[in-house]
Simulated assay, not measured.
Amino acid sequence: MITGASGGLGAALASHYAAPGRSLLLWGRDHDRLERVAAACRAAGATVVVRRLDLSDIAAAVAAVEADDAAAAIGVALLVAGAGDVRAPGDIVEDAAQIAHLGLVNFVAPSSMAAALARRMVQRRTGTIVLVGSAAAFHALPFAAGYAGSKAGLLRFADALRLSVIDRGVRVTVVSPGFIDTAAGRKSPGPRPFLLQPADAAARIARAAERGRAHSIFPWPFAVLRWIDRLLPAMARDRLLRALTPPQD
Protein backbone atom coordinates (compact mmCIF):
# COMPACT_ATOMS: atom_id res chain seq x y z
CA MET A 1 0.00 0.00 0.00
CA ILE A 2 1.30 3.45 -0.92
CA THR A 3 -0.47 6.68 -0.01
CA GLY A 4 0.35 9.81 -1.95
CA ALA A 5 0.92 7.71 -5.07
CA SER A 6 -0.15 10.56 -7.34
CA GLY A 7 2.72 12.71 -6.00
CA GLY A 8 6.37 12.61 -6.99
CA LEU A 9 7.77 10.43 -4.19
CA GLY A 10 4.72 8.15 -4.00
CA ALA A 11 4.82 7.59 -7.77
CA ALA A 12 8.54 6.76 -7.55
CA LEU A 13 7.84 4.21 -4.81
CA ALA A 14 5.05 2.67 -6.87
CA SER A 15 7.45 2.34 -9.81
CA HIS A 16 10.12 0.85 -7.53
CA TYR A 17 7.79 -1.86 -6.24
CA ALA A 18 5.96 -2.60 -9.50
CA ALA A 19 6.88 -6.08 -10.75
CA PRO A 20 5.20 -9.26 -11.99
CA GLY A 21 3.40 -11.06 -9.21
CA ARG A 22 3.24 -8.04 -6.94
CA SER A 23 -0.04 -6.45 -5.81
CA LEU A 24 -0.11 -2.69 -5.26
CA LEU A 25 -2.77 -0.62 -3.53
CA LEU A 26 -2.26 2.99 -4.60
CA TRP A 27 -3.93 5.91 -2.87
CA GLY A 28 -3.90 9.46 -4.21
CA ARG A 29 -5.88 12.67 -4.59
CA ASP A 30 -5.23 13.53 -8.23
CA HIS A 31 -7.32 11.13 -10.33
CA ASP A 32 -5.51 11.62 -13.64
CA ARG A 33 -2.01 11.33 -12.22
CA LEU A 34 -3.01 8.35 -10.09
CA GLU A 35 -4.36 6.55 -13.14
CA ARG A 36 -1.16 7.25 -15.07
CA VAL A 37 0.94 5.83 -12.24
CA ALA A 38 -1.34 2.80 -12.02
CA ALA A 39 -1.10 2.21 -15.77
CA ALA A 40 2.70 2.31 -15.64
CA CYS A 41 2.75 -0.17 -12.75
CA ARG A 42 0.39 -2.52 -14.59
CA ALA A 43 2.65 -2.30 -17.65
CA ALA A 44 5.50 -3.45 -15.38
CA GLY A 45 3.47 -6.54 -14.49
CA ALA A 46 1.95 -5.55 -11.14
CA THR A 47 -1.68 -5.98 -10.15
CA VAL A 48 -2.96 -2.56 -9.12
CA VAL A 49 -5.97 -1.29 -7.17
CA VAL A 50 -6.43 2.47 -6.78
CA ARG A 51 -8.28 4.57 -4.25
CA ARG A 52 -8.88 8.31 -4.57
CA LEU A 53 -9.27 9.95 -1.17
CA ASP A 54 -8.41 13.19 0.66
CA LEU A 55 -6.59 12.31 3.88
CA SER A 56 -7.85 15.43 5.63
CA ASP A 57 -11.06 13.43 6.18
CA ILE A 58 -9.56 11.33 8.97
CA ALA A 59 -12.59 9.15 9.68
CA ALA A 60 -12.95 8.26 6.00
CA ALA A 61 -9.22 7.51 5.70
CA VAL A 62 -9.22 5.16 8.68
CA ALA A 63 -12.40 3.42 7.51
CA ALA A 64 -10.93 3.02 4.03
CA VAL A 65 -7.63 1.52 5.20
CA GLU A 66 -9.47 -0.92 7.44
CA ALA A 67 -11.75 -1.91 4.55
CA ASP A 68 -8.81 -2.35 2.17
CA ASP A 69 -6.92 -4.46 4.71
CA ALA A 70 -9.99 -6.60 5.32
CA ALA A 71 -10.38 -7.18 1.58
CA ALA A 72 -6.71 -8.19 1.15
CA ALA A 73 -4.24 -8.15 4.01
CA ILE A 74 -1.69 -5.35 3.59
CA GLY A 75 1.84 -6.65 4.10
CA VAL A 76 3.74 -3.38 3.66
CA ALA A 77 2.15 0.04 4.12
CA LEU A 78 4.07 3.12 3.01
CA LEU A 79 2.34 6.22 4.33
CA VAL A 80 3.86 8.82 2.06
CA ALA A 81 1.13 11.41 1.54
CA GLY A 82 1.74 14.76 3.18
CA ALA A 83 1.70 18.49 2.62
CA GLY A 84 4.53 20.98 2.65
CA ASP A 85 4.11 24.69 3.08
CA VAL A 86 5.79 27.80 4.49
CA ARG A 87 4.43 31.06 5.83
CA ALA A 88 3.16 33.54 3.26
CA PRO A 89 5.40 36.42 2.17
CA GLY A 90 5.08 39.31 4.60
CA ASP A 91 3.68 37.16 7.42
CA ILE A 92 5.42 36.80 10.76
CA VAL A 93 3.32 33.78 11.76
CA GLU A 94 1.69 31.16 9.55
CA ASP A 95 -2.06 31.27 8.98
CA ALA A 96 -4.01 29.24 11.56
CA ALA A 97 -5.93 27.33 8.87
CA GLN A 98 -2.64 26.34 7.24
CA ILE A 99 -1.33 25.03 10.56
CA ALA A 100 -4.50 22.99 11.07
CA HIS A 101 -4.28 21.50 7.57
CA LEU A 102 -0.63 20.54 7.94
CA GLY A 103 -1.32 18.97 11.31
CA LEU A 104 -4.14 16.88 9.88
CA VAL A 105 -2.38 15.68 6.73
CA ASN A 106 1.16 15.28 8.06
CA PHE A 107 0.47 13.96 11.54
CA VAL A 108 -3.10 13.04 12.44
CA ALA A 109 -3.98 11.14 9.25
CA PRO A 110 -0.83 8.98 8.91
CA SER A 111 -0.68 8.33 12.66
CA SER A 112 -4.33 7.28 12.81
CA MET A 113 -3.98 5.06 9.75
CA ALA A 114 -0.77 3.52 11.10
CA ALA A 115 -2.48 2.75 14.40
CA ALA A 116 -5.44 1.14 12.64
CA LEU A 117 -3.12 -0.97 10.48
CA ALA A 118 -0.87 -1.90 13.39
CA ARG A 119 -3.82 -3.28 15.37
CA ARG A 120 -4.75 -5.52 12.47
CA MET A 121 -1.16 -6.55 11.74
CA VAL A 122 -0.62 -7.46 15.39
CA GLN A 123 -3.47 -9.94 15.11
CA ARG A 124 -1.68 -11.54 12.13
CA ARG A 125 1.72 -11.14 13.83
CA THR A 126 3.26 -9.81 10.65
CA GLY A 127 3.49 -6.56 8.68
CA THR A 128 5.58 -3.49 8.00
CA ILE A 129 4.55 0.16 8.33
CA VAL A 130 6.69 2.94 6.91
CA LEU A 131 5.96 6.56 7.82
CA VAL A 132 7.57 9.24 5.68
CA GLY A 133 8.67 12.18 7.78
CA SER A 134 11.23 14.87 7.03
CA ALA A 135 14.59 16.14 8.22
CA ALA A 136 12.69 19.36 8.95
CA ALA A 137 11.38 17.59 12.05
CA PHE A 138 14.78 18.09 13.71
CA HIS A 139 14.73 21.89 13.58
CA ALA A 140 12.53 24.74 14.82
CA LEU A 141 12.03 26.43 11.46
CA PRO A 142 10.41 29.86 11.96
CA PHE A 143 9.28 30.03 8.32
CA ALA A 144 7.74 26.53 8.38
CA ALA A 145 6.61 25.97 11.95
CA GLY A 146 3.52 24.00 10.91
CA TYR A 147 5.44 21.66 8.61
CA ALA A 148 8.38 21.10 10.98
CA GLY A 149 6.06 20.67 13.96
CA SER A 150 3.77 18.18 12.24
CA LYS A 151 6.72 16.09 11.06
CA ALA A 152 8.27 16.20 14.54
CA GLY A 153 5.03 14.83 15.97
CA LEU A 154 5.00 12.07 13.37
CA LEU A 155 8.58 11.12 14.24
CA ARG A 156 7.81 10.76 17.95
CA PHE A 157 4.58 8.86 17.26
CA ALA A 158 6.35 6.41 14.93
CA ASP A 159 8.98 5.64 17.53
CA ALA A 160 6.33 5.04 20.21
CA LEU A 161 4.26 2.84 17.88
CA ARG A 162 7.37 0.83 17.00
CA LEU A 163 8.02 0.10 20.66
CA SER A 164 4.38 -0.95 21.14
CA VAL A 165 4.43 -3.62 18.43
CA ILE A 166 8.09 -4.65 18.18
CA ASP A 167 7.43 -7.93 20.01
CA ARG A 168 4.30 -8.73 17.98
CA GLY A 169 5.86 -9.37 14.58
CA VAL A 170 5.15 -5.87 13.24
CA ARG A 171 7.91 -3.51 12.12
CA VAL A 172 7.58 0.28 12.07
CA THR A 173 10.08 2.42 10.20
CA VAL A 174 10.17 6.20 9.96
CA VAL A 175 12.27 7.90 7.30
CA SER A 176 13.49 11.48 7.46
CA PRO A 177 14.70 12.57 4.03
CA GLY A 178 16.22 15.89 3.15
CA PHE A 179 15.28 17.73 -0.01
CA ILE A 180 13.62 15.70 -2.78
CA ASP A 181 13.10 17.08 -6.28
CA THR A 182 9.30 16.99 -6.33
CA ALA A 183 6.67 19.65 -6.96
CA ALA A 184 6.02 19.92 -3.22
CA GLY A 185 9.73 20.01 -2.41
CA ARG A 186 10.29 22.91 -4.79
CA LYS A 187 8.13 25.12 -2.57
CA SER A 188 10.91 25.22 -0.01
CA PRO A 189 12.51 28.68 0.01
CA GLY A 190 16.20 29.18 -0.53
CA PRO A 191 18.80 26.61 -1.64
CA ARG A 192 18.13 22.88 -1.47
CA PRO A 193 21.48 21.23 -0.76
CA PHE A 194 22.06 17.49 -1.34
CA LEU A 195 18.92 17.34 -3.51
CA LEU A 196 17.71 13.79 -4.19
CA GLN A 197 15.81 12.57 -7.20
CA PRO A 198 12.54 10.77 -6.33
CA ALA A 199 13.78 7.39 -7.64
CA ASP A 200 16.86 7.59 -5.42
CA ALA A 201 14.77 8.51 -2.38
CA ALA A 202 12.33 5.68 -3.15
CA ALA A 203 15.15 3.14 -3.30
CA ARG A 204 16.51 4.33 0.06
CA ILE A 205 13.06 4.11 1.66
CA ALA A 206 12.48 0.61 0.31
CA ARG A 207 15.89 -0.48 1.59
CA ALA A 208 15.17 0.92 5.07
CA ALA A 209 11.84 -0.91 5.15
CA GLU A 210 13.39 -4.19 4.02
CA ARG A 211 16.08 -3.96 6.70
CA GLY A 212 13.59 -3.05 9.41
CA ARG A 213 15.38 0.17 10.30
CA ALA A 214 13.75 2.07 13.14
CA HIS A 215 14.76 5.45 11.72
CA SER A 216 16.51 6.26 8.46
CA ILE A 217 17.89 9.76 7.82
CA PHE A 218 19.21 10.58 4.38
CA PRO A 219 21.34 11.92 2.83
CA TRP A 220 23.84 11.60 5.69
CA PRO A 221 24.60 15.35 6.10
CA PHE A 222 21.10 15.78 7.54
CA ALA A 223 21.96 13.34 10.33
CA VAL A 224 24.98 15.51 11.09
CA LEU A 225 22.82 18.65 11.09
CA ARG A 226 20.48 16.97 13.56
CA TRP A 227 23.34 16.50 16.00
CA ILE A 228 24.58 20.05 15.46
CA ASP A 229 21.09 21.34 16.32
CA ARG A 230 21.12 19.25 19.50
CA LEU A 231 24.64 20.18 20.60
CA LEU A 232 24.70 23.89 19.86
CA PRO A 233 24.07 26.22 22.81
CA ALA A 234 20.52 27.51 22.70
CA MET A 235 21.49 31.08 21.89
CA ALA A 236 23.74 30.00 19.02
CA ARG A 237 21.09 27.67 17.63
CA ASP A 238 18.43 30.36 17.77
CA ARG A 239 20.71 32.86 16.03
CA LEU A 240 21.49 30.35 13.28
CA LEU A 241 17.85 29.42 12.65
CA ARG A 242 16.83 33.08 12.53
CA ALA A 243 19.64 33.81 10.09
CA LEU A 244 18.41 31.02 7.81
CA THR A 245 14.87 32.35 7.81
CA PRO A 246 13.85 34.09 4.57
CA PRO A 247 12.87 37.76 4.94
CA GLN A 248 9.18 38.53 5.56
CA ASP A 249 8.94 40.83 2.56
Results as ranks from 00 to 15, higher is better:
M1L: 11
A5H: 05
G8M: 03
G10I: 11
G10Q: 04
A11P: 01
H16V: 02
Y17H: 06
A18K: 03
A19M: 03
P20E: 04
G21C: 06
R22G: 00
R22V: 12
S23H: 14
L24E: 04
L24A: 03
L25H: 12
L26T: 04
L26G: 03
L26F: 06
G28H: 11
R29V: 08
D30M: 05
D32S: 12
R33Y: 03
L34Y: 07
L34D: 02
V37A: 02
V37Q: 02
C41S: 15
C41N: 12
R42G: 05
A43E: 11
A44P: 01
G45S: 11
A46W: 07
T47L: 14
V48L: 12
V50N: 07
R51M: 03
R52C: 09
D54Q: 13
I58C: 00
A59I: 10
A59H: 12
A63M: 08
E66T: 07
A67C: 09
D69E: 12
D69I: 10
A70L: 14
A70V: 08
A71M: 13
A71H: 14
A72F: 10
A73N: 02
G75W: 03
G75M: 09
V80A: 05
A83C: 03
D85N: 09
V86P: 05
R87K: 11
R87F: 11
A88R: 15
D91Y: 13
E94K: 00
Q98L: 14
I99R: 09
H101E: 11
H101L: 14
L104G: 00
L104R: 15
V105W: 07
N106W: 10
F107W: 13
V108F: 15
V108D: 04
A114H: 01
A116N: 03
L117T: 08
R119P: 00
R125I: 06
T128R: 15
V132A: 05
G133C: 05
G133P: 00
A136M: 07
A136E: 07
F138H: 14
A140H: 11
A145W: 15
Y147G: 01
G149W: 14
S150V: 10
K151T: 04
F157P: 00
F157I: 12
F157C: 07
D159R: 15
L161A: 10
R162N: 04
V165K: 03
I166K: 14
D167A: 15
D167S: 15
R168V: 01
V172K: 07
V172N: 08
V175F: 09
V175T: 12
F179Q: 01
F179S: 07
T182P: 01
G185S: 11
G190D: 08
P191M: 09
P191V: 09
P198R: 11
P198D: 10
A202L: 08
A203E: 10
A203T: 06
R204I: 02
I205A: 06
A206I: 06
A208L: 05
E210N: 09
R213V: 04
H215D: 04
S216I: 01
F218N: 06
P219S: 06
W220V: 08
F222Y: 15
R226V: 02
W227C: 06
D229H: 14
L232E: 07
A236D: 00
D238L: 09
R239N: 08
R239E: 04
L241A: 08
R242Y: 04
R242A: 05
L244W: 14
L244T: 00
P246T: 13
P246D: 09
Q248D: 12
Q248R: 15
D249Q: 11
